[in-house]
Computed example of a mutant assay.
Amino acid sequence: MVGPKNPTSSVCWCLSHRIPAKQNTSLAGQERADFVEALTRKRTKPGVLAYDGDEVVGWAAVAPRADLPFARSTKIPHVDDQDAWSVWCVRVRPGHRGRGISHVLLEGAVAYAAQRGAPVVEGYPVDNQGEKVDLTMAYVGTRVLFEKAGFTLAARTEATSAGFPRVVMRRNE
């Protein structure tokens, strides 16, 4: 779900916001897949999946903010000192979009974070004000998606994605 059709491609694998930039660029091809596989063996899993029967149709990345580059971001502010968990990638497989799967994924990510003791969950979606977001950059989600899941605007940021400003949305657990 997070890897490319060609396993030797050096694409995201949902690592660009999970690990430091230098480490992210150093991993190539199969190394990226191996890194993600190793993450799945840790006590805290790298995210949640959505299924349609036996088929994986969606993915949401979720982890403690302190474990991510977001902890050191100069563009996305810390709202307070709570041990927030971050949801930064929500993907739905083509052919399954428009069915509410992103909403289920976001709820699943929040539930998983709460189960692991997160006092608050935050995301950094675009504030696109209803305008279409390029699908390659839509993985960050939209403000409306997070609002529908009970998140509220916590802060504005200096970050952008697909030409839209990003905001910090939060939900207390």
Rank of each mutant, 00 (worst) to 15 (best):
K5H: 04
K5G: 12
P7V: 06
T8M: 04
T8R: 09
P20K: 08
N24S: 08
T25Q: 14
S26H: 01
A28H: 12
A28E: 13
A28N: 10
G29W: 03
E31Q: 15
R32Y: 00
R32S: 00
R32M: 00
R32F: 00
A33F: 06
R41I: 08
P46W: 00
A50C: 11
D54K: 11
E55D: 13
V56A: 06
A60C: 08
V62Q: 05
R65Y: 06
D67C: 05
A71G: 10
T74L: 09
K75M: 11
I76K: 08
P77D: 00
D80E: 06
D80N: 11
A84R: 08
S86F: 04
V87K: 03
W88E: 12
V90L: 10
R91G: 04
V92Y: 08
V92W: 05
G100A: 07
V104C: 09
L105G: 00
L105M: 01
Y112S: 03
A114G: 15
Q115V: 06
V120C: 07
V120N: 02
E122H: 14
G123I: 12
V126I: 12
V126L: 11
D127C: 03
N128V: 06
Q129A: 13
K132I: 09
K132S: 13
L135T: 12
A138C: 02
A138R: 06
V140F: 09
G141K: 05
F146I: 11
E147C: 01
A149Q: 14
F151H: 02
A154P: 02
A154W: 05
A155M: 06
T157M: 04
T160C: 03
T160H: 13
A162V: 07
P165E: 13
R166S: 01
V167H: 00
